[in-house]
């Protein structure tokens, strides 16, 4: 049931130093948690338990309280972005053209849910709002590459290209 990120934490000493500076900067203001979380995510790209613990000790706020805030706001991420960032458009046009099934197939193949990253750090998965390519619906993106007019059967071959 644990929701900890399976990708090993690769934070550096420099990043930790930066985080301590951010904490020191906001510590004595009212409501320091949100700005610290925002800046922490800028430093690390996401907010794993290692980072949340440093914030918890630095601001003297219980870890659960921090986790509650992180999971409340969609903007905060518990998982890093993968080497390949997959985005499946769930905008109206794509959705009615079956992007839900596309998303499910991707989940099935790479074994992670939306907002997660595979343990090897290769793929991360996002469900996006309309990306403005409705003419190509249903659409998904992998990094800068756009794949349109997809059917579920296309997915294994597309993902295979990125798997080696």
């Amino acid at each position: 049931m644990s929701n900890k990120c399976p990708v090993p934490f690769k934070g550096t000493k420099e990043q930790e130093q930066q985080l301590h500076e951010v904490i020191a900067k906001h510590k004595d203001q009212d409501g320091p948690l949100m700005p610290v979380l925002q800046e922490a995510q800028e430093i690390y790209g996401y907010l794993p338990i290692e980072v949340q613990k440093i914030i918890s000790e630095g601001l003297n706020i219980p870890l659960e309280h921090i986790y509650g805030v992180v999971t409340f706001y969609a903007q905060f991420s518990l998982a890093p972005k993968g080497e390949y960032k997959i985005g499946v458009c769930l905008g109206t046009a794509c959705y009615v053209k079956g992007s839900g099934d596309i998303l499910n197939k991707i989940k099935e193949i790479i074994g992670i849910d939306v907002g997660e990253c595979t343990p090897d750090g290769k793929f991360s998965l996002e469900a996006t709002r309309c990306i403005g390519a409705c003419g190509l619906a249903p659409v998904m993106t992998i990094n800068e590459e756009v794949y349109g007019r997809l059917v579920v059967g296309d997915i294994p071959d597309i993902l295979k290209k990125y798997m080696d």
């Binding site: 049931m1 644990s2 949340q52 219980p62 986790y67 509650g68 999971t71 409340f72 518990l78």
Partner: peptide, 21 residues
């Protein structure tokens, strides 16, 4: 303070940090 509300909306549930037991 080891329990609190995690997630939001319909998914809101009471649990511990990272939903660890």
């Amino acid at each position: 303070s080891v329990i609190g509300a995690n997630e939001r909306g319909f998914a809101t549930h009471i649990g511990s940090a990272f939903d660890d037991g």
